[in-house]
């Protein structure tokens, strides 16, 4: 498991860089990323378990007694509610998932500006997440000896869409920060619960751009020290795994899961 994570540096001989920052222990490897991903996923699962237990303290229907906190209570209640008759409301689940969860029609109806900000963050985040998972899968396939496509080639293929969606995400984040800072209503109502989410996303995007720039030796026209690529990548990967996976159940990021579930439970809402 010593396969080196592809960071743009192919020679592994250079253990300590000119700044003395890079040590062997810091060199990012596939195994290291794998372990961090597993830890993040484990924290995510623990968080989801706690949330399911918490939700499971509710009843299975209106007017019924509270349940005992079983993790099965929520899915059973959700399934029951989705199949129950709606009164004047209610739409097909596919309409709900595509128009309301994916395209966020309800937000568009109320505030096109806020919708644009959110769809940029959502679209950019989802696309980058999918591409990261795809890259991960290609590396695994390659590692077990199935040579369909080399990770290096695949990474180059993803380079352009990666850039596009990174800028889309960046745009959304800049609008969100602007809104939280300069729109009075939004600023006055902002609490730590909201700020943490935005700060997390900002760090991920900024470190992503820096890591990518270092790997390519150039960042928005500025020359970068390529030998810093592994630790920069490592930092970006760690922070991304932390915010984008592990931290979800414990923060406002939870709305990414609870939002679509709510839309499904209420048949698209009123």
């Amino acid at each position: 498991m010593s396969m080196e994570y592809f960071s743009g540096l192919t020679e592994s001989a250079e253990i300590v860089n000119s700044l003395g920052m890079l040590t062997e222990s810091m060199r990012i490897t596939f195994a290291a990323v794998m372990i961090m991903a597993m830890i993040s996923f484990a924290i995510f699962m623990i968080g989801m378990y706690i949330n399911l237990k918490k939700w499971g303290l509710g009843s299975e229907g209106y007017g019924l007694k509270p349940s005992n906190g079983s993790i099965l209570t929520f899915p059973k209640t959700l399934a029951y509610q989705m199949s129950a008759k709606g009164h004047g409301h209610g739409q097909n689940i596919f309409v709900t998932l595509i128009l309301d969860a994916l395209l966020q029609r309800r937000a568009l109806k109320r505030s096109p500006g806020r919708w644009l900000m959110h769809i940029a963050i959502f679209g950019g985040w989802i696309a980058l997440c999918i591409m990261s998972v795809a890259m991960f899968v290609v590396e695994i396939i390659h590692m077990v000896g199935i040579h369909i496509i080399s990770p290096e080639v695949f990474r180059e293929m993803l380079s352009f869409p990666n850039d596009v969606f990174s800028y889309i995400l960046l745009f959304g984040i800049i609008v969100a920060i602007f809104r939280r800072l300069f729109v009075t209503k939004a600023r006055e109502s902002t609490i730590a619960f909201d700020s943490v989410l935005l700060i997390g996303l900002t760090i991920i995007v900024v470190t992503g751009f820096i890591a990518d720039g270092i790997r390519n030796g150039t960042f928005w026209g500025m020359g970068m020290q390529s030998d810093l690529a592994p630790p920069a990548s490592l930092f970006h990967v760690v922070i991304s795994l932390f915010f984008c996976i592990a931290y979800i159940p414990f923060s406002k990021y939870m709305h990414m899961i609870a939002g679509p579930l709510t839309l499904m439970a209420n048949k698209g809402g009123e």
Binding site: N51, W55, L57, G58, P66, T77, L78, S111, A258
Partner: peptide
């Protein structure tokens, strides 16, 4: 507090609010 009269779905809905402020 306890969870009397709240369904499991309603407890989940609490975590879905993004505090967009449209309701306000």
């Amino acid at each position: 507090i306890n969870t009397n009269n709240l369904t499991a779905v309603q407890l989940m809905e609490l975590d879905a609010c993004v505090r967009c402020g449209e309701c306000v």
